[in-house]
Design a protein around this nucleic acid. Structure first.
Lengths: 236, 236
DNA sequence: TCAAAAGTGTTTAGTTTACACCCATGC
DNA sequence: GCATGGGTGTAAACTAAACACTTTTGA
């Protein structure tokens, strides 16, 4: 097939599903209220058209920064959506990304670009514009399965965290209670956390703070180590 | 941001990385020799531009059928590539898919669309056009990690297969030897295979043939069952 | 002294690994 | 009868799960 200068060119957007953790260890997703038609005033996943001479990753970073003021966070490509009727303006292909941030270090308010932005609990999602519900569903599934096999949970926490915070995060995402002692020994045995000082000014026994040792993880990972939090097994 | 009719539109292609298993249980990938510039006569992953009113999945299916004559096989989206310099003709975004077929049921020769097509062993890959080496690398990684957690290996085998064939497949993809007895008991305990009749006309004790019971797998899968072939663990 | 969360050890069940010999068939 | 791959059982090591009480702090 010779190159055909008149080959069909669709529009291409990038959309970023941004997840964060709130104070009570609930996962939230950042949505914006659309300022223009179509779907004016509907909630949507932040995103926009790619520009000339811009890579997909760069577009995702740019949109994310424009919408939320955040940069240098964990971001990775999720899936590309190309159904014909997903946008009333015509055939618009969307390359979706998913991003994880720590809400405390990047507070809600820091948004926006003249649009209203808000963090929604996954249990209290509004109706979304376009096929964004579908995109969000896929992002949630990806978060869920990724969290089991890769230590991405740390991206959602502050740099220093307690084991209880880490456990709450896993319990929220996995949707089930974990045994405290077993969780602690499992995580600590992996030897990818660095113990720091204790908490201060808490109205109970202060917990040790930890940070994720990424170098150590990568070293272990190259030697066949697998980070895995498995589903519960039935006992007989 | 109001809709801008002059928004930038790149070209969009789909490329299909097709894996198959040869007689000696080696994984092979289907490549085509390019008939036109750029990269004329270079080997490349089959693919092409999407058409008006065509979804990405449909384009992938179409290209696959045009290049190989194959339809109704396992295919899923892999990743979308959008670097600026990946194609000398300009900014061309490629949505890559990866597909698995059983070489015996869809023999090599069935190709092509006036292009030369050939199955290459992963250990004997030629230089590839564009950024196709990168795409192929990512596809191989995906195959490797997917095979561990999802029963996709069956897509590469004929409908009826022996446990030894299944084991060879896993050994090839995982790149390590597996203990025969342990592999057998592990797979059989999962209870996702259906035992059929024995082989015939083989110069040794005939093995039982099995087929993958997809319904059963899905049922178990919904109940939290995980298909997993884990990496070797060190003993002390 | 109370409330609240941190921290810890052991037993048991289940799973994974390693290992060697006999079996059925075609030639 | 021999070469080829098919098929099987078990003990030992390890891992995962279940479980309850004591500690430290601020209020």
């Amino acid at each position: 097939m010779p190159y055909n200068k008149t080959n069909y060119k669709p529009s291409v957007t990038v959309d970023c599903v941004v997840f964060g953790l709130d104070k009570s260890a609930d996962v939230r997703v950042l949505l914006i209220k659309r300022a223009y038609e179509p779907y004016q005033n509907s909630w949507a996943i932040p995103g926009g058209f790619i520009k000339e001479n811009e890579t997909l990753d760069a577009a995702a970073q740019r949109e994310l920064e424009e919408e939320t003021g955040v940069r240098n966070i964990f971001i990775e490509q999720l899936y590309t959506f190309g159904n014909l009727n997903r946008d009333p303006r015509g055939h618009i292909i969307s390359v979706a990304y998913f991003a994880l941030i720590n809400l405390e270090e990047h507070p809600t308010s820091a948004a926006t670009d003249a649009k209203e932005a808000q963090w929604f609990k996954l249990s209290e999602l509004p109706e979304l514009a376009f096929d964004h519900s579908e995109i969000l569903d896929i992002a949630i599934k990806r978060l869920d399965s990724k969290v089991r096999y890769q230590p991405i949970g740390f991206e959602l926490l502050p740099e220093k965290f307690t084991l209880s915070e880490l456990q709450s995060l896993y319990e929220t995402i996995l949707g089930r209670a974990l045994n405290r002692r077993n969780f602690r020994s499992k995580i600590l045995k992996m030897d990818i956390l660095e113990q720091l000082e204790r908490q201060k000014d808490v109205p109970h026994r202060p917990a040790f703070l930890y940070k994720f040792n990424k170098e150590k993880y990568e070293e272990l990972s190259n030697n066949g180590f697998e980070f895995a939090i498995s589903p519960p097994k039935e006992r007989h």
